[in-house]
């Protein structure tokens, strides 16, 4: 019984991680649907957003290391802390600016290229952003705190202790994250189903040429989806940064959204969510039950191997559209 409850607790924690995977995966799906670009840089965008937020909030002078080295000065921060809300707003603005620049400087020049070329370009973008973020804000591990409650939730522990005689350890941060993620998904669904821009988005996703011919501006749509992806990255960055500090490994965790996508299907929003939850719960449970027998830390590869095996049997993913080949 105890083991079962423990497994349940592990699953719930995995579920919470899965929500964060789903959040990053959502960014991928949005961009892929609207522009056919498989944005490898989504993970680094999460890191970049979190870095910018921390940097602004803690009053770090952008490029201070570079400036110090260039001019021989020793600047170290502005000496003040920016109000969280303002920092959030500015970070959001910089993500929008990033989206605009990406369209301007990269996508515009690669229209109608082989998707694989675009994919490789986003790998270049990921490298750039990683170096740029570190250069701008410094590469040290930063603590992100914007006032979201963290720590084990006492209420849940006491309540479960009363019901099962076993207190569940669940982080309050995870609870908040799940609620926010759920709201975001609902919001995006409403946006894409009911707003005019949303309709244009879906039209573009369906058929670029046809959308162009009815007067939808592809480039505007791209800026919009990259902006939304930036917003999603910011939110994911906030929760993940709060959870485990803002550092390089953030972009690797975010990379797990890739197998999530494979599982869910590249073009499906529900797929991203279900895939994220499956991977989140699956990897925690796998590590809990089998991982200890084979040396642990199976979370590093579990998601990828599941995706690989799964793709062998269903190449289009759980919810993806079936691929029919023609001559």
């Amino acid at each position: 019984m105890q083991t079962l409850l423990f497994a349940l607790e592990v699953s719930i924690n995995g579920f919470m991680t899965g929500i964060l995977y789903a959040l990053v995966a959502l960014g991928f799906v949005l961009i892929f649907k609207a522009s056919g670009v498989f944005n490898y840089a989504q993970g680094v965008m999460v890191l970049f957003a979190a870095l910018t937020l921390v940097g602004l909030q803690q009053g770090i002078v952008p490029f201070e290391h570079l400036i110090n080295n260039l001019l021989g000065t020793s600047i170290h921060g502005f000496g003040w802390n920016m109000p969280t809300l303002l920092a959030l707003l500015l970070t959001l603005l910089s993500m929008l600016l990033l989206a605009w620049l990406v369209e301007r400087l990269i996508l515009k020049h690669l229209v109608n290229q082989n998707p694989v070329i675009l994919f490789m370009a986003t790998i270049g973008l990921a490298y750039f952003l990683e170096g740029f973020g570190d250069l701008m804000w410094g590469a040290d591990v930063k603590k992100l705190d914007i006032g979201i409650p963290v720590g084990i939730s006492d209420t849940v522990e006491q309540a479960t202790h009363e019901w099962f005689g076993y207190g569940f350890f669940i982080d309050r941060l995870d609870i908040t994250a799940s609620i926010v993620a759920a709201l975001l998904v609902i919001g995006l669904t409403i946006f894409s189903q009911f707003s005019k821009t949303g309709r244009a988005l879906r039209a573009v996703a369906d058929d670029h040429q046809a959308a162009l011919s009815v007067g939808i501006s592809l480039r505007r749509i791209w800026v919009i989806v990259w902006s939304i992806a930036g917003l999603v990255a910011l939110i994911a960055g906030i929760f993940w940064g709060t959870k485990s500090g803002v550092q390089f490994s953030l972009s690797l965790v975010a990379l797990k959204a890739l197998p999530v996508l494979m599982l869910g299907g590249l073009t499906s929003i529900p797929g991203a969510i279900v895939g994220g939850l499956l991977i989140g719960v699956g990897e925690k449970l796998f590590d809990f039950m089998i991982g200890s027998m084979i040396g642990g830390a199976t979370e590093n590869w579990f998601a990828y191997v599941v995706a690989l095996v799964f793709l062998l049997f269903r190449p289009q993913g759980l919810f993806g559209e079936k691929i029919i080949e023609r001559v």
Binding site: L105, I106, M120, A121, I123, G124, L125, A126, Y127, F128, L129, E130, G131, F132, D134, L135, A139
Partner: peptide, 12 residues
């Protein structure tokens, strides 16, 4: 950091 930035730009 500059290496990462330049390599990224070069690739693109």
């Amino acid at each position: 950091h500059l290496e990462f930035i330049s390599v990224g730009i070069l690739i693109i």
